[in-house]
């Protein structure tokens, strides 16, 4: 059997006295969409940042395509160019137009010429339906539009894996749908994704596995169906119940045909 694309083994991370991650392990196969959810402060964002070493773990191993990222002689910049990341607060480069935000990676990291990079950036913007806004600066865009540019910025690098860190939780409710739609499209095109989100509609539509994290440990794993019908642990049950009370049915925001495909 082929080795998983990404192996996360026994990750520990503390901020001073606060132990955030206490031995988290999971694998991601190629083409998988892994959804991580759990209460705030449970270590989800830290876990994502440990995967691309923006926050290096204290202990444990992260192996991407056979390369151990914890090795001191691993070229992390090269590895990071293969792992896309989408941030909760978008983190677009404020002094650059949408198109230049997206073409920066291809130019500075992949070494493409300005024209080639711009062409690729435009393709990525078309994928997220933002080509009309290419010449706008981030501050001239809505949150949903900024996040779609953020997704294009990750996509343009042709990453083997994209990490999403609560991509919709900073958005106004009416803007969540457009971002989820783009993420669904990407998921269906076969991109490997690790997504931290509370959007259960999205998870049900495309997740191959869901991971429930609380207090720095994986409490429960399972398919969306498993969590919908028969979550085993009390903590997962409680959390899912609270989500439902708070968010209701976000899947209504998704277009109907996507739901059907996702459920089939």
């Amino acid at each position: 059997m082929e080795k998983p694309l990404l192996q996360v083994k026994n990750i520990w991370k503390a901020y001073d006295e606060l132990q955030v991650l206490k031995g988290v392990s999971f694998d991601v196969e190629e083409g998988e969409v892994k959804v991580i959810f759990g209460p705030s402060g449970s270590g989800k964002s830290t876990l994502l940042r440990c995967i691309n070493m923006l926050t290096p773990p204290d202990k444990g191993t992260v192996i991407l395509q056979g390369t151990n990222l914890m090795d001191s002689d691993t070229n992390l910049n090269m590895i990071r160019s293969k792992i896309g990341m989408v941030f909760q607060h978008f983190n677009l480069f404020l002094h650059l137009k949408a198109i230049d935000n997206v073409s920066l990676g291809p130019r500075r990291v992949l070494g493409l010429s300005k024209d080639e990079a711009t062409e690729r950036a435009l393709d990525a913007l078309i994928q997220v339906k933002m080509e009309k806004w290419a010449d706008h600066y981030p501050a001239q865009l809505s949150g949903g539009q900024q996040q779609r540019v953020g997704i294009a910025r990750a996509l343009v690098m042709n990453p083997v894996l994209i990490l999403f860190d609560e991509p919709t939780s900073a958005l106004d409710p009416e803007l969540i749908g457009e971002v989820l739609q783009v993420m669904l499209d990407i998921a269906k095109s076969g991109t490997t994704m690790v997504v931290v989100t509370h959007e259960m509609g999205f998870a049900r539509a495309v997740a191959t596995e869901m991971i429930f994290i609380d207090e720095g440990v994986i409490v429960e794993k399972g398919t969306p169906r498993h969590f919908a019908i028969s979550p085993e642990t009390e903590r997962a049950k409680q959390f899912l119940h609270r989500l439902e009370v708070l968010y209701g049915h976000h899947e209504e925001l998704l277009e109907p045909e996507d739901k059907e495909e996702g459920n089939s």
């Binding site: 691309n52 923006l54 990071r80 983190n91 500075r108 990291v109 910025r153």
Partner: peptide, 29 residues
């Protein structure tokens, strides 16, 4: 914001590269 520098690093830019092409153009303005 330090987060913009993180975003640059997440693309594969080095820290120095991120400071040069993301932080400095904004701070000099």
């Amino acid at each position: 914001s330090a987060e913009q520098l993180l975003a640059a690093q997440s693309l594969g830019l080095s820290r120095a590269g991120g400071i040069r092409s993301i932080v400095l153009p904004q701070s000099l303005r």
